Computed example of a mutant assay.
Amino acid sequence: MSKVVINSHKEFEQFLGNRIGESDWILVDQDRINKFADATNDHQWIHVDVERAKEGPFGQTIAHGYLSVSLLPCLWEQIAKVNNLKMMVNYGMDKLKFGKPVLSGQSVRMVVDLQSIADLRGITKVELKFCLEIQGEKKHALDGIATFLYYFEA
């Protein structure tokens, strides 16, 4: 999948109201889930106890919702390369909804549209409407709006 290259506010504007792109599929396997559990000290059985989870509501372990959220930055980097920056700041997350659990062994990808863009005295504020799709499923794992501030070089 080819990345979109964005070098300026003006180049970002061309995507307003349109799809910027989608990432590659990424596997969410039990090893990834276990490492996330270790990193966050969230070892709830539904995520890490494979045997007990077989008797649970999903018939197997599921990824943490926040594991799914944590994949967004690396998936965004697969979609777009934003150049000529002094820095970029994560500004916020709005309307984040968890639609469907990601089962261990499923793959997900991010799809992004540019919902809004503003020039705040030389700082580019973008609102990216995203969804995290689950391969082979109609319902999304996540939907929301990520807001970033891009400080482009003059």
Rank of each mutant, 00 (worst) to 15 (best):
G59V: 03
A63N: 11
D24W: 12
G21I: 07
Q14W: 00
L16I: 10
W76I: 14
D49R: 12
A39M: 13
N41W: 13
E13Y: 07
L72S: 04
N90K: 01
D49K: 09
W76Q: 14
L75E: 01
I79K: 09
N18Y: 05
Y66Q: 10
A37L: 10
A53C: 08
N34V: 15
M93I: 14
A39R: 04
I62D: 01
L75H: 03
H9M: 12
N84L: 10
L72N: 10
A37R: 11
G92S: 02
V69Q: 00
R19W: 06
M88G: 15
R52W: 02
I26T: 11
D42G: 11
G21L: 09
H43S: 12
K54E: 09
G65F: 06
L75P: 01
Y91C: 01
N84V: 02
N90Y: 07
H64L: 11
V69P: 00
K10Y: 12
L27W: 00
E11F: 09
L16C: 01
S68D: 10
V48F: 11
H64I: 06
H43R: 15
I26V: 15
L72G: 00
H9I: 06
Q78F: 02
W25E: 11
D38W: 03
Y91R: 12
I26S: 09
G17T: 04
G65M: 09
I33V: 15
S70K: 05
T61V: 08
A80F: 03
D42Y: 09
N34D: 15
V48K: 11
L67P: 03
R52A: 14
G92L: 02
N34Q: 15
D24Y: 12
V89E: 00
G92H: 01
W76D: 11
K54V: 07
K54Q: 13
H47V: 08
K54P: 00
Q44F: 06
S70L: 06
I20S: 01
E77Q: 13
E55R: 05
L16A: 05
K86T: 11
H9T: 09
D49T: 03
D49H: 04
K54W: 00
A53V: 02
E77F: 10
C74P: 04
D31P: 03
D31N: 15
K35W: 05
E55G: 07
V82Q: 05
V82Y: 04
I33S: 10
R32W: 02
Q30F: 02
D42W: 12
F36M: 08
A53H: 04
N84C: 09
A37W: 05
D29M: 05
P73T: 05
H43G: 10
N34E: 15
M87W: 02
D49W: 06
Q78I: 03
A63Y: 12
G56D: 05
H9S: 09
M88I: 14
